[in-house]
Nucleic acid binder design. Sequence first.
DNA 1: CCCGCGCTACGAAGATCTTCGTTGACGCTA
DNA 2: TAGCGTCAACGAAGATCTTCGTAGCGCGGG
Lengths: 133, 133
Amino acid sequence: MAEKKATPTPRPTDAELAILNVLWQRGPSTVRDVYEALSASQGTGYTTVLKLMQIMTEKGLVVRDESQRAHVYTAKQSERRTQRQLLGDLMDRAFGGSSAKLVLNALSDHPASAQELRNIRALLDQLEKGDAR
Amino acid sequence: MAEKKATPTPRPTDAELAILNVLWQRGPSTVRDVYEALSASQGTGYTTVLKLMQIMTEKGLVVRDESQRAHVYTAKQSERRTQRQLLGDLMDRAFGGSSAKLVLNALSDHPASAQELRNIRALLDQLEKGDAR
DNA sequence: CCCGCGCTACGAAGATCTTCGTTGACGCTA
DNA sequence: TAGCGTCAACGAAGATCTTCGTAGCGCGGG
């Protein structure tokens, strides 16, 4: 075996993340799909999106199905996994690795709904109980 | 009035954030101070740190006291404020603006101590009660 | 069979980030 | 006062990110 990629999937840039968001939301999409979804909010040109997605393919952020004339792209990492990565990254770089600090900051600055607060509380319960981990 | 700077303080880059961390930790520091604090963990040269801090001064990320021969730098934004900014940014870019999603992710992936969990719970109480915010 | 349209590929340009070598100024000390 | 060490300033180089213009290809309609 020598096929194991050592490259741990780089951190997506801002523009790349915008594209990933579209892919997660729509599922496998062509460049045109993504372009149309993005051009609504941003003013990027078609070839710009295309180029970015080509680069993302090289980086391993997305995988490409070339069997169709219009290639179909899919996010390689799940949304969850990417969020985890970005979050862990920020936590290390700006919060000294403390998830609690990060969480406290997030909550006090950006209030969540009552329902969401309940969800968080539920998770807390779970964490405290199955503290074994 | 025309003196109001429209520039809202740019998002610090990775290398800049590393420097800011030192400034927050040590308080006002010279380039050498920062360099020594950083070179322990990273292998950056003195002039590299200097250049970065000069750029950060231009960007308004730090302020510089030039009254001494060795200029003394201070972080312009508080650590808290910067954390807030970075967090809000990430929330928008990767979590669809939902702080709850972000928090749930953070907690389930990066467990906090019991004490920290208590703190979070306390904040939740506070948020739910004095919901007036 | 030929044209035009949509799509990918390529390459280049400009911006920003990161790194560092070099230079010149300053002040202490022998 | 001459020399040495420390410091800021500058400029340049290489990497990465972002944006497009342009070219080339293949398919379907006329």
